[in-house]
Structure formats: structure tokens, C-alpha cells
Design a binder for these strands. Structure first.
Length: 480
DNA sequence: CTTAGGG
DNA sequence: CCCTAAG
């Protein structure tokens, strides 16, 4: 009987929520919500609380509806259920999330970003899940603000009433607080306990940064354990979890298990080797430096991922180490050298987000191929990583991939989509266009063959050609 | 220092 | 991503 009523209430609530989505404000909902919340809290089944926790991050409303009422509705499924308006807003929300995250990441609210993200909004729909991983990954860069960003954007997606501020990046921080409260009240629908928990988290989050880590981390661990088996079924969940883990300033690329893996993997054999070596030689300085790099908190702007200095520091140490290790065999010495360099240049494979790719493509469209430093300075100025060389490499890869499954088989591409990181079709199209306009040296041959490139068409396409020389000037002028 | 190209 | 050669 209780469950019966519960369901009824949930449906009712659901309807109200839909109303709310449309009308943006429905007085009296809070009361109803509280009532339902009590009912739900009583059974205290595991999944209720879990859902509550998991729903915390993104699309609370969506998830609630999905899990409780529309079990078949997932991902964008729910958008379909809710018709045009919501579809638009939902997409807008996701789109916005992209923009906002990226914008904050770059600390520059460039209009370009918005353009870029907007361009791909259609594509995002398909690739949302794929985007989210890298996207959240990049969130690492903006620790403190990330929380509010996420929440803000999430609420954007289900409450059009707030979408007024969506266009201005400046309004985000302002609107985030009230929005958060909104989210909380929605969360409360499923359980006050959860709500309380969230409130705690929020409070600590907005109050002070320090304690947050300690507060959140245990929660994460708990939820993580619960969630392990559901990871496949609930991609959003993993997304949320990961995001929260990110708040713990731990680098995470995917599911929760990776967290521990990474942590465990940190003291590599090489590291231990070095450790012992250094301790025997009594050179702690080297060790210190290494330990700093071995445990990178986040690729923050203040600590560029790979700076030129890195080259210098190890070199000096190497020299002194050579002096010290006079007794060592040459082979060992050689190995030390190699391991040192390898250690310093360890791969921090920061995945390219779709937004980044689009920015890159935009930049290339603007400045042409080969002006990597300009593109880097103008579009990736705030991305501490991503050297011009990286951009070039990425472009090379993009060319390759775009030409790989180009005109041949779209279906295959769709199949590959799941295996490899897919590239939205519009983006691929742009890449291919750019590739035809200015073929990349050397790769050109394969490129041309696939696009049926005619050399004469390159010059007439003056759209980009003239940019080349102005860009030169720009480079000189551009001091920011 | 920047770019191209190879690994 | 990394490294190196070339301008």
C-alpha cells in the first residue's frame, strides 16, 4: 500500500515537475516534494538513497524521472519523451555545459568557444557520453569553480527559467548559488537524508575549500562501491562520480577503479629504482623534484605540464649524478640516464576533448595550417599543456582519422564509433574541408586521394590563403 | 624559437 | 607524445 501510494505520488510529482519545467515555477511543489520525500525516506531501500546521491551532479530531475518512472528512458531518451521544448533545453544544457566547462577551463570566455561548442551541439547529442569523459577530465584545471559550474549547467538543462543567464559566462557564479538550492530541493524529493548530505557538501564547498576533500572523498568511496556493477548501465552516474572524484583533486579518467589503479601505479619500478639510487648517493634534491612530478595534483595553469625548465633541471642533476656514480658501470649509468629522461617526460596523456579539437579546427581555419604557435597563443593560450607541437600532432592525427573513414564507409565509422573515440560528423567534415584547403605536407598524398583534391582549387579558395600573410603580421603584433 | 617529420 | 633536424 505504501509502495502504491509512493508510485502515485511519484507520478504526481513527475507531472508537477514537468509543469515546472515548462512554467519554471510551481508554488507548492516544495511541500509536496517534502511529503514525498518522507514517504520515500521511510522505506529506505538502498537504491533510493543511492539514486539520490548519484543524482546530485547532473540532471537531477532527469535522472529521477528516468529511474523511477521511465526506466526505458536513458541518455537522450528522456529528451525524446519530453518532446521538443525539453529536447531543446536539454541539449542546450549539455551544450552549455561544454561551453562553460571549457570556458572556465580556459579562463577566457572567448566567443570562439561558444561558437565552437555551438557548432557541434548537434553532434554532441550523439557523442555526449564520449565527450563527457574528456570534458570532465579537463575540469581538473579549474578546481574550485568546477563545482558551481557543473551544478549550474546541470540545472540549466532542466529549468529553462534559469537559462536567461546561460549566455553570459559572467552570470554563472552569481546564478549558481540559487540554482544549487533549487537542485537541492529537487534532490530532497527522493530523500531528506540525501539532501542533508548534499547540503553539507555544498556548504563546505562554498564555505571553504579545504575540508571539502575530506568530506567528499568518503562519500565517493561509498557510492563507488555501490555503483561498481552499475557502471555500464549508468554512464551518467560514472560521470558524476568521476566529477566528484575530480573535486578530490585526484586525476581520474574513467570509472572509479582507475583512481586506485593510478594511485597504486604511482611509485613505479623506475621510481623505486631511482629512489634507492638517490638515497644511496645521498642526493635528495633529485628525489624531491621527481616526487613533485610523480604526484601531479592536476595539470593546473600554475604548473605547466611540461615546461622547458624541465629539460634543464634534470640535466643538471644528471650531470652531478654522473659525477657521483663514477663507481657504477657504464651500462647502469646509461640506464639511469634513460630512466631519468623517461621519468621526466612521462606521458601525461591529456586526452583531447571535443571542444579542444573544435577549437583547433577553428584556429586552423583562421590562421591556416602551420601556424601552430599562433593558434596556440590565441586559442589555447590558457591551456598550459598543448604545445604548438601538440596541436600539430593532433591535427595530423585528425587528418589521418578523418581521411581514414572518410567517404568509404559511414557505417563502419558508426561501428568504430563505439570502439574508438568518435568524432562528430560535422567536425570530421570541417577537418576534411580544411584538409582540402591546405593540405598538410606529406600527409597530403593520402588526403588528396580521398578527397579528390585538385591543386588549382587551393589558390582560388582565397578564404584562407590571404590569412596566411596577415597572420604573420598578427604574430608580430600579438603580444598577449 | 618554430616547424616538419619520424618514432 | 616524444625527439630531432632544419630554417
Amino acid at each position: 500500500m505504501k509502495t502504491d501510494r509512493k508510485q502515485h505520488l511519484i507520478k504526481k510529482l513527475c507531472n508537477m515537475k514537468r509543469q515546472r519545467v515548462d512554467q519554471s515555477i510551481v508554488p507548492g511543489l516544495e511541500d509536496e516534494a517534502t511529503e514525498v520525500a518522507h514517504l520515500l525516506a521511510e522505506p529506505k531501500s538502498e537504491h533510493v538513497s543511492r539514486d539520490g546521491v548519484l543524482c546530485f551532479g547532473k540532471d537531477n530531475l532527469e535522472k529521477h524521472l528516468k529511474m523511477e518512472d521511465f526506466s526505458c528512458a536513458f541518455d537522450y531518451g528522456w529528451k525524446i519523451n519530453y518532446g521538443g521544448l525539453d529536447s531543446i533545453h536539454g541539449q542546450g544544457g549539455d551544450d552549455l555545459k561544454l561551453e562553460v566547462l571549457d570556458g572556465l577551463l580556459d579562463e577566457v570566455d572567448e566567443v570562439d568557444d561558444i561558437h565552437a561548442a555551438h557548432d557541434i551541439s548537434g553532434a554532441c547529442e550523439d557523442f555526449l557520453l564520449d565527450i563527457e569523459f574528456p570534458e570532465k577530465h579537463s575540469v581538473l584545471d579549474c578546481g574550485p569553480r568546477e563545482g558551481s559550474t557543473l551544478r549550474n549547467s546541470s540545472s540549466e538543462s532542466h529549468s529553462p527559467g534559469f537559462s536567461g543567464s546561460s549566455n553570459s559566462a559572467g552570470g554563472i557564479s552569481e546564478s549558481s548559488i540559487p540554482t544549487v538550492q533549487e537542485s537541492n530541493s529537487k534532490n530532497g524529493v527522493l530523500g531528506n537524508m540525501v539532501s542533508c548530505d548534499l547540503h553539507r557538501n555544498f556548504r563546505s564547498k562554498y564555505g571553504c575549500q579545504g575540508p571539502v576533500l575530506d568530506t567528499i572523498r568518503p562519500t565517493i568511496e561509498d557510492v563507488q562501491d555501490l555503483d561498481v556493477s552499475d557502471d555500464d548501465e549508468e554512464p551518467l552516474v560514472s560521470f558524476i562520480l568521476s566529477n566528484r572524484k575530480v573535486k578530490g583533486s585526484v586525476k581520474v579518467t574513467k570509472g572509479g577503479t582507475l583512481l586506485r589503479q593510478k594511485r597504486l601505479r604511482k611509485p613505479t619500478r623506475r621510481y623505486i629504482e631511482e629512489f634507492s639510487r638517490n638515497s644511496t648517493t645521498g642526493k635528495n634534491k633529485c628525489l624531491k623534484v621527481r616526487s613533485q612530478e610523480e604526484f601531479p595534483q592536476v595539470p593546473s595553469k600554475s604548473q605547466p605540464r611540461r615546461g622547458r625548465p624541465k629539460k634543464i633541471v634534470p640535466k643538471l642533476e644528471l650531470e652531478s649524478d654522473c659525477e657521483f656514480s663514477a663507481s657504477e658501470s657504464e651500462d647502469q649509468h646509461k640506464r639511469t640516464k634513460r630512466s631519468k629522461t623517461a621519468c621526466d617526460r612521462r606521458k601525461h596523456q591529456t586526452m583531447w576533448t571535443l571542444a579542444e579539437v573544435i577549437k583547433l579546427v577553428d584556429g586552423i581555419a583562421q590562421y591556416g595550417v602551420g601556424r601552430w604557435t599562433d593558434i596556440k597563443r590565441l586559442l589555447f593560450a590558457s591551456s598550459a599543456y598543448r604545445t604548438p607541437v601538440d596541436l600539430r600532432d593532433k591535427w595530423r592525427n585528425l587528418l589521418r582519422s578523418s581521411s581514414a573513414h572518410g567517404h568509404n564507409r559511414r557505417e563502419v565509422q558508426n561501428n568504430v564509433k563505439h570502439a574508438v573515440r568518435p568524432l562528430p560528423k560535422p567536425v570530421v567534415r570541417r577537418i576534411r574541408e580544411l584538409a582540402t584547403i591546405h593540405p598538410y605536407p606529406r600527409v597530403r598524398s593520402s588526403k588528396i586521394s580521398s578527397v579528390d583534391y585538385v591543386p588549382s582549387s587551393k589558390q582560388p579558395t582565397t578564404k584562407v590563403a590571404p590569412v596566411y600573410s596577415p597572420a604573420r603580421n598578427l604574430r608580430g603584433k600579438n603580444c598577449c
